[in-house]
Design a protein around this nucleic acid. Structure first.
Length: 668
RNA sequence: GGCGAGAUAGCUCAGCUGGCUAGAGCACACGGUUCAUACCCGUGGUGUCGGGGGUUCAAGUCCCUUUCUCGCUACCA
């Protein structure tokens, strides 16, 4: 066994249990798994944690829709997620759920502790909340009794809330980030965090909610539940036995701080700002590294359930096999940019890398060993040493070159993995396999076989091939564990264990004992696929998905408090006709429209530039709130508001009268 | 609008602190080979290195400028 290099604690983000994860979500666990496996191979004492994030309003609503309790709902989804993680052969050590009793208990205690020490405070600004700005103001901050930001009325707070004093720790965090350049990966993300959040000054974070109940209740104020990020992020410490009262487990002492939090790039902010600050408040050391990986996107249009083109891991595994899917997602994901997945790309990788380069190599090597030596692989020592050079001066000592490539690969893979460049690491391994294929052409075993006198040379060639493949197969273990086993099972049929090598010796050549046999019945590792067949199957899957999703996914909308007809009556809505529309300078999302409302024409700014071109708006009749206090946006005064509907998938449309009616008509 | 990244072969991308005829993989074409899953090996391309200017003996590689793309962020009355 390699020497123990010490503990290594790696986590994925915990998956939100609102539904079955698609292949893009599944990518993260595979990436984490390959890193975890690789570190284990290197000799680290790895602890790999993943799990599910199970609280929040969205889940509360989904459960209601399904007619079951939230707990039943998350039990189902969590089980399904775990099943997929297992299907992908991921070697996590712990699967935590935020509904686990010990987790909930610690979160309550953490909240209390932070409250007691003054980091969390209950909003004392009751009555002066500006809803659109999502900000509380003190009496003294108001300008003319109005919100100093937008100048609108501040209202009595709808809900009291607890806040976390982020600003208190901001300087320490900035210092930490500056002193640990490797903390945020890739580094481009570090700049975004510094420039957009830390340098301008951190806002306090709201850490409780009262608008729903599916969450961890605040012990001492049970109408509040703990805001999901404080709940979710702490899984990284509660999962390994952290206890606020100082009774943390030995495991915690050993593993914390984590070596790597692997997360999607969308939640970098929570992991590199709020999480470190929570930890500082708890007086715990910060994780060593946070890697915000890019996304695996579907190439052919946006994934959507109604289109039925969502790609799920289990469908892919059915069609291609686990390791092929692992290979694909790891290979297609560069370090910084988003990767793309399509059925065509999947087939291409499968055929060219897995079937042609690797599968065929193993197959032809075994076939020749059987054909020429009855499967016995002997090291004879008849090498190509001293073969000289060809007419172009190129070395004919093919053995030496093959060995050099094979033995150098381990170090190359290690180097790539050190910086988490998993795709590049795999490429190095496939370079090894390609070198083996080339070696066959160089040495031409079929030609050697025709000459009795060359029998020992032929044996040596085949030995070298089997040995080279053995090394490559062992290097592949972190990424495609089943393939490693499948190859070794064929090269060492009597006892595959004899083909397994410690990572430390993967830079050595010639460890295979001479005289062992390879299998008499080679099996194809990866079958070539026809793109037509695959596309046909993909269509079947899409059709099934569409059918299964006859039900519609409704948007989740945070509930507002009940109002009376008098409240409603305060709002004046009228039909407006868009006369003219143009983009607002200095703004990306804004359009300014000239709208006829009765006998007056108003300028109204709307955040719809991403959905409507200015010329599309002209001539439309829309619903307009006409008694809204005017307000300047990006330097342009807006005298009202165009009503529009938006769903959860980024669609938006303005609201128009169903029949033609004259501009100025009141909507009531 | 602010901050940042990028624009290199048909496609996806490498090209560090400037230096010999600009690379890899895939795709494509031609040649070789037959052990093998019609597979493997070799050879090949015209790349205005986004446009324009500049520094230098020498610039994808540095500076300025311009166009476009992308990320984060603000505005979304």
């Amino acid at each position: 066994m390699p020497e123990n290099k010490g503990p290594y604690y790696i986590t994925t983000a915990i998956a939100y249990t609102s539904g079955k994860p698609h292949i893009g979500n599944t990518y993260e666990i595979v990436l984490a798994d390959s890193i975890a496996r690789f570190r284990r191979q290197e000799g680290y004492d790895v602890f790999f944690q993943t799990g599910t994030d199970e609280h929040g309003q969205k889940i509360e609503l989904k459960a209601e829709e399904a007619g079951i309790t939230p707990k039943e709902f998350v039990d189902n989804v969590s089980t399904e997620i775990k099943k997929i993680w297992d299907l992908m052969d991921t070697s996590y050590d712990k699967f935590i759920r935020t509904t686990d009793e010990d987790h909930e208990k610690q979160v309550k205690k953490i909240f209390k502790k932070l409250y007691d020490q003054g980091d969390i405070y209950k909003s004392s600004y009751e009555g002066l909340y500006c809803t659109p700005c999502e900000s509380f103001w003190t009496e003294s901050q108001l300008v003319d009794g109005k919100c100093p930001d937008c100048g609108r009325e501040v209202k009595p707070a709808k809900e009291e809330a607890y806040f976390f004093k982020m600003s208190k720790y901001a300087d320490r965090l900035i210092q930490y980030i500056e002193e640990h350049p490797e903390f945020i990966q890739p580094v481009s993300r570090k700049n975004e965090m510094m420039n957009n959040f830390l340098k301008p000054g951190l806002q306090d974070l709201c850490v409780s909610r009262t608008s729903f109940t599916w969450g961890i209740p605040v012990d001492f104020d049970p109408k509040h539940v703990v805001y999901v990020w404080l709940d979710a992020l702490t899984n990284y410490i509660t999962g390994i036995g952290y206890d606020v009262d100082g009774n943390s487990t030995e495991q915690f002492a050993k593993l914390w701080p984590a070596d790597l939090h692997l997360i999607g790039k969308d939640i970098i902010r929570f992991h590199t700002i709020y999480w470190p600050i929570f930890l500082m408040a708890l007086d715990l050391p910060l994780p060593k590294q946070v890697f915000g990986h890019p996304w695996l996107l579907q190439g052919d249009g946006k994934m959507s359930k109604s289109k039925g083109n969502v790609i799920y891991a289990d469908d892919l595994v059915d069609m291609f096999g686990v390791d092929a899917v692992r290979y694909f997602v790891l290979h297609e994901m560069p370090f910084e940019n988003d990767g793309v997945i399509t059925w065509e790309l999947l087939v291409e990788r499968m055929n060219s890398d897995l079937a042609n380069t690797l599968g065929n190599l193993v197959n032809r090597t075994i076939a020749m060993s059987n054909k020429y030596f009855g499967g016995v692989v002997k090291k004879t020592g008849v090498t190509s040493e001293g073969a000289g050079v060809d007419e172009n001066g190129a070395s004919l000592d093919f053995d030496a070159d093959l060995k050099a490539v094979v033995t150098a690969t381990k170090e190359k893979v290690k180097t790539k993995m050190k910086t988490l460049h998993v795709a590049d690491a795999m490429t190095e391994i496939f370079t090894l396999f390609k070198r083996c294929n080339k070696y066959i052409d160089e040495t031409m075993p079929w030609a050697l076989a025709k000459d009795e006198a060359q029998a020992d040379r032929l044996a040596e060639v085949l030995y070298n091939l089997v040995e080279g493949i053995t090394v490559g197969a062992n290097l592949l273990k972190a990424f495609m564990p089943n393939t490693t086993d499948a190859i070794l099972a064929q090269l060492y049929p009597e006892n595959p264990k004899r083909g397994e090598r410690d990572f430390d010796v993967l830079d050595q050549f010639g460890l295979r004992e001479s005289g062992m046999k390879v299998t008499e019945t080679p099996e194809i590792l990866f079958a070539r696929l026809d793109i037509k067949d695959v596309l046909a199957k993909a269509e079947e899957i899409q059709a099934a998905q569409k059918a299964a999703n006859g039900g519609v996914e409704y948007p989740v909308v945070e509930k507002k408090p009940e109002i009376t007809i008098d409240d409603f009556d305060k709002i004046q809505i009228q039909v407006g006709e868009v006369l003219k529309c143009e983009p607002v300078k200095k703004a990306k999302k804004l359009l300014v429209s000239q709208i006829r409302v009765g006998d007056e024409v108003r300028h109204i700014v709307s955040g719809i530039a991403a959905y409507y071109k200015p010329e599309e708006m002209v001539g439309k009749k829309v619903a307009v709130i006409t008694n809204l206090k005017p307000c300047k946006l990006c330097g342009v005064e807006s005298q009202g508001m165009i009503l529009a509907a938006a769903d959860d998938n980024g669609n938006l449309c303005v609201v128009s009268p169903e029949k033609d009616i004259i501009a100025g008509s009141e909507i009531c």
